[in-house]
Design a protein around this nucleic acid. Sequence first.
RNA 1: CGGGGCGUAGCGCAGCCUGGUUUAGCGCACCUGCCUUGGGAGCAGGGGGUCGGAGGUUCAAAUCCUCUCGCCCCGACCA
Length: 555
Amino acid sequence: MRFSKMLIPTLREIPADAEAISHILMLRAGYIRQLAAGLYINLPLGSKVIEKINKILREEMNAIGAQEMTLPVLHPAEVWQETGRWYEIGDEMFRLKDRGDRDMCLGMTHEEIMTWLAVREIRSYRDLPQVWYQIQTKLRDEARPKSGVLRTREFLMKDSYSFDADEDGLERSYQLHADAYHKIFSRCGLKFYMVESDPGMMGGATAHEFMSPSPAGEDEVVLCTSCGYAANIELALSIPKKIGIMDWNFEEVHTPEKRTVEEVSNFLKLRPEYFIKSILLISDNGPLLALVRGDQELHEKKLNRIIGKHRSAQKKEVKDILGVEAGFIGPMNHKLRIIADMCLKEGVYVSGANKQHYHAKGIRPGKDFIAEWHDIHVAKEGDSCSKCNAALKIERVIEIGNIFKLGTKYSLPLKAFYLDEKGLEKPIIMGSYGIGPARIAAAAIEQNNDKDGIIWPKSIAPFDVEILPLNMKDVKTLDIAEKLYKDLTEKDIEVLMDDRDERAGVKFKDADLIGIPAQIIIGEKNIKEGLVEIKDRRTKEAVKVKVEEVVKVLC
RNA sequence: CGGGGCGUAGCGCAGCCUGGUUUAGCGCACCUGCCUUGGGAGCAGGGGGUCGGAGGUUCAAAUCCUCUCGCCCCGACCA
């Protein structure tokens, strides 16, 4: 491809609206343009990258026997109503009516539709297993689109669905996907982790996410470098660092106007880990107390799994229910249900005395209060691994893929049954597996860039090589450029030739920005000796090569 | 949805507080010509603006007031 024939609108300045590195570089290097919040146009270069990624996706999906198909983006409401998601999902679903006033929605994922198809086409155990996939647009009315292409309202997704006769079959399909995903992300040149994740509203028991490290990510994962434990922070277990057990006797201490752990901790000259934070929550079954150690944060999602829906109490409710102001609540002498973090089981602590301007010192769990013990704290860097006790590490990541065991969550309500060998009707056991190609591209940029621009991994670069004829008015330069362009193209190397009548500096800057892995620089001085330079975008190292040998060197 | 910020030429910004002196300005980009060709050159000339929109205050509004739309960031949410 000739640069002059391709729309590559590079920007010299940093667009004011972009913050994430991948976002800035995709805009500056002419890969994308924004239409509206969370809606992006893929320019020619951007499309080429997505196509490269999709090709890898197809190869690896096909390799595990998955079959590609395409499904509508516009769905009738009925099928979503049958699984209940029409009602469970809120504003995030784009809904509309057709001319006949029928309720419709835009597909945010395709479990319903794939299962609808399975209902009609799978009848016998002989038809199983099946893995169906598509690479298709999804639409979600995101509350907050952000970070360029990382969180958009319309995005491409490779989504596959497995249909098996039993749990063993699902396990095989799940494992096949996990393996394929490892290959896909490795081939795309990404650093990534497979971590345990919260199945959430997708249903089912087991789920993993593929996470690619980047400060632009929205998630955090907890990693153990010793035993390999890896989990999304939303469910990661950890053992907080142990503290010494004090031999305080129970006493009430005057702590005037000292409410937060930080204030009391400074006032009493005691580290926060010797405190118990007592938090009043209102659940559907009434008020309860949650206790975490002073140096910890209460983990809403973990607690949610134990007590269901809840919210924090308002100031007035605290007063009404506990008879004391927030800031002086302690776990003693309540009739409320108490959920406490595991690590509080041992030790002697300080907490509110349930009395204005007083805290209680010498609180002994089990003696001064009774609680249900659970891991309800947010894992922290330096906590110990719950499996092997080694120190845990926390990393910010981009979710680039996920795999879910759905079980019968969709096959039961939609009646996707098959007949087994004995003629018994059984529900199909399903799995669902997603990958976001745009997030792969963004993660690749996040992990591979320098001050000059993008440095694409070879496998997903829009072109393999960029030719830079520095002086377009020099006939010899042109001759060599054209010859190399032709020779390389014939060898199936994808070449971008910067044939614009621009100064050398402009071509160098744009080439670095765009990030094609190899550059062939054709300058007049080197030509006199029959040489051109081949430069590595990543290392910036250039080697002089005879014109005739360029093809050989690059192949 | 809560909090914050920003909308002035294709991009990046100044002007706004303290209304008039601006025919709304600067850099880059763009067009024409000359010149130049190894890291975003130089000179000369030129085109491009409903100052996000609506309403209001005023003799006079980019500037003050009200409403509204859009975009970004933090949080909540994220099937």
